[in-house]
Nucleic acid binder design. Structure first.
Lengths: 229, 229
DNA sequence: CTCCAAGGTAACAGATTTGTAACAGGGGTC
DNA sequence: GACCCCTGTTACAAATCTGTTACCTTGGAG
């Protein structure tokens, strides 16, 4: 969930627009993932957990406004800022756009410069360190908002890396993550770090979680990676 | 400084516009104070401490953009959201407007309905729950109305920045705020201030809160930011 | 059982991040 | 003007976290 470069989900059905925006977003330093229709968009929001969503108003299938409503009504994603893009300059729509929960609204044609300014503003405002509500697994609780972790009620102190590692595990308990995947998610895209480093940090996480007794909740999958539970 | 009904400062030189807006703002439940030129506006900002400023771009005397810059460059007022109103639809101006520090920008003619929506958005963002009621956390009490803070009954003297910092923290005890978020909320947006400055002020806040003993209520979340409790 | 690759982990040498005192400048007040 | 309070920045020390390495243990194929 975003380590260095913010991830922008671009939802736009027109190929030309999409390319222009992608190009510009990239050169501003964002990672971009794209969807051309509402259904893909909704899936991608959940899968990628973007830091910001650029949403075309008019879309084939599920409309932009509907996507926005869904994103905002779901706890896990409600915090993600949404910027609506629309050809309509109709004022009712502008108002509705904002009231649906969009965080900003731009009418086409808009300058790329302005869009980038708005994106920066939104990211600066909303982007917390780690997002999400409290995750639970067994007797372990991790709260992304307060950055607190406890096991059986007792507080657990974790370093930043261990915290991110545990959050990743807890996001999908049981799922097996390869070392490469963990490096990607926890350390960030394109960071040169030895895969054995993952082992060391998993070890540190284990030690922290078991300091007051209790079974080791982290499972080693030999030849593959690690998983929680 | 805002008891119950948010106070909007309306800066507009054209009498007709002014009346229309005032009427509408009133009926939406805002208190309105007005200025017809830049000089009056600047005085009123300091005197009344409005919760939001509606600023016409073109003004006799000091220009809207200049007022905005002054409001935003002054720490005591930087956090007040400014919405610019302008006849110019020039996109460069929009961008410049936002980059000068305005929080939003509307091009005339705009619908009153839209303006109200934007105002709500801005107020929702900036306006802490501190207005009116006192906030409490542990033995710390912060009264947004009288601007007084006490710990265990003993009064605590805080500078303006520390006060806003503490009220941000107290708005959501436990929540971790990144330095950028704090800069945004406490200092105001688009203020170029080093993130380390946040550390210094947190330090000052800590010292003030602990001067009569008691545990440090501010928690450092390494690699992320700070939180209360 | 033997052997080897895979995984666990202590230790260490940096590298980062944070706490804080000191300082200089801006504004306001008298 | 002299004074005072508040700010933002800086520099340095202290605290804490990191990645790597080296050396062990483990698992399981044969």
């Amino acid at each position: 969930m975003s380590a260095e470069r913010p991830l922008v989900l671009l939802v736009e059905d027109e190929p030309a627009q999409r390319e222009i925006l992608r190009y510009n977003l990239r050169s501003e330093g964002y990672d971009v993932s794209m969807a051309e229709n509402g259904d893909d968009a909704i899936v991608l929001v959940d899968e990628m957990g973007p830091d910001l969503i650029l949403l075309d108003w008019m879309l084939p299938g599920v409309s932009g406004i509907e996507i926005c409503r869904r994103v905002k009504s779901k706890r896990a994603t409600a915090h993600i800022p949404v910027i609506m893009l629309s050809a309509r300059s109709d004022e009712m729509d502008r108002v509705r756009g904002l009231e649906t929960g969009a965080d900003d609204y731009l009418t086409k044609p808009f300058s790329v410069q302005e869009l980038m300014a708005r994106i920066r503003t939104q990211l600066r405002r909303t982007r917390p360190a780690t997002v999400g509500q409290a995750l639970e697994f067994d007797d372990i609780v991790l709260d992304g908002e307060t950055h607190r972790v406890s096991r059986g009620g007792a507080p657990i102190k974790l370093g930043p890396t261990e915290f991110r590692l545990l959050s990743t595990f807890m996001e999908k308990p049981g799922r097996v993550w390869s070392r490469e995947q963990l490096l990607d998610r926890v350390w960030g895209r394109d960071v040169y770090v030895d895969t054995r480093t993952v082992d060391v940090h998993v070890g540190r996480l284990r030690k922290a979680l078991c300091q007051h007794g209790g079974a080791d909740p982290v499972r080693t999958v030999r030849g593959t990676g690690y998983a929680l539970g």
